[in-house]
Design a protein around this nucleic acid. Structure first.
Lengths: 196, 196
DNA sequence: ATTATCTATAGATCTATAGATAATGC
DNA sequence: ATTATCTATAGATCTATAGATAATGC
């Protein structure tokens, strides 16, 4: 039942890709090794030939997810007609994203759990977060590098918190109201002058 | 081993209070019925005399936690010298709160998991969230009720997202930078004019 | 010969229930 | 007599490992 090197590399990719989706959908504790392996078409015993532990997969899956969603944000900014922050708001704070955590930013769906993860995992998240913040900082006009970064942080925090709140209620009116309110505020946050 | 009605009511209170803390600390799946009961000085078998299921406790614990933290926010606003939003930023986005999820707002620590909870739980969260938003709306000066509410939503989203991001990195410099950037932006978000 | 995967299982959880026990409160 | 709690356990997880199997790749 051995497979070729290429097949094995494909399997590894499939497992990480599945994990990156399912963790966002169910949380780190909401999906087990066995089911992730099943989704990749393998049995659970083969897992430990690929990874030392579930924790290692958590780390790799988060890196993958962050790389993907950062690339997506970059594309949205690059293709924006007019204010990139309006484009970011429409993309990130959409009804589609509220419903599907699977392929979207890790922070609204996994932020709380990440805070409880061991150092290796949190360290990987730090790298990804720095990447997002420097990407967003480049989409802000401001005098100093420092002020651009501060605005980028405040703006990204709004996006993440807005999605957390929109997802935490089952009332569709309130949920839509949250997405709209934050979307509307976002361009101002990204451009607002720092408090004197 | 039966106890008096008053003792039983005390036990119930203790279990809910423990759960409200431990869920915020470890997540809903990170702490079991047995350990929660141990913290209340009881054995796990007694749990089902108090609650129909763990899910029922999740709902009650979230209601309790939200009631407590809303009261705390109300107090911060009432006692603020000057801009209440500066006081809210100092209180909510503090280093102390970054470290201790236990007694603080449920959304940064449990927001992602709440989105995956059944209707009963999410419905309880909706009520609590409406309470927080109307409290915060009263702390905003704005022409219309609608504009005050929109600002309250955007501001609360920033607070929640800011804490999520600050907690998700183990880099103390980045974490402090996030808390400062969002704190600085918050009064502007709460007061900013809506985009035309 | 090496090794990726499979089958089977150990050992540790976790939620929930059943029946026994002992204290309350009519 | 009623009932809150305790002890014990069922049944279903979950992570991780051991040994067998069968295909790769020297």
């Amino acid at each position: 039942m051995k497979v070729s090197k290429e097949k094995m590399a494909e399997h590894r990719e499939k497992i990480i890709a599945s994990a990156a989706k399912r963790f966002r959908e169910h949380g780190f504790e909401g999906i087990g090794v066995a089911e992730l392996m099943k989704e990749a078409g393998l049995t659970h015993g083969a897992f430990y030939g690929h990874f030392a532990s579930k924790e290692e997969l958590v780390e790799l899956a988060l890196e993958r997810a962050m790389r993907d969603s950062t690339a997506k944000l970059e594309k949205v900014i690059a293709e924006a007609q007019g204010d990139p922050w309006q484009a970011l708001a429409e993309f990130y704070l959409s009804l589609r994203h509220r419903k599907n955590a699977v392929t979207v930013c890790i922070f609204p769906s996994l932020g709380g759990e990440i805070a409880r993860q061991p150092t290796g995992v949190r360290s990987a998240v730090t790298d990804g977060l720095q990447g997002i913040l420097s990407l967003l900082g480049r989409a802000i006009r401001g005098k100093t590098e420092k002020s651009r970064r501060r605005k980028a942080i405040a703006a990204f925090a709004s996006m993440v918190g807005g999605m957390v709140l929109a997802r935490s209620t089952e009332d569709p009116t309130l949920s839509a109201e949250i997405l709209e309110a934050v979307s509307e505020a976002l361009p101002d946050i990204a451009a607002s002058a720092p408090t004197p």
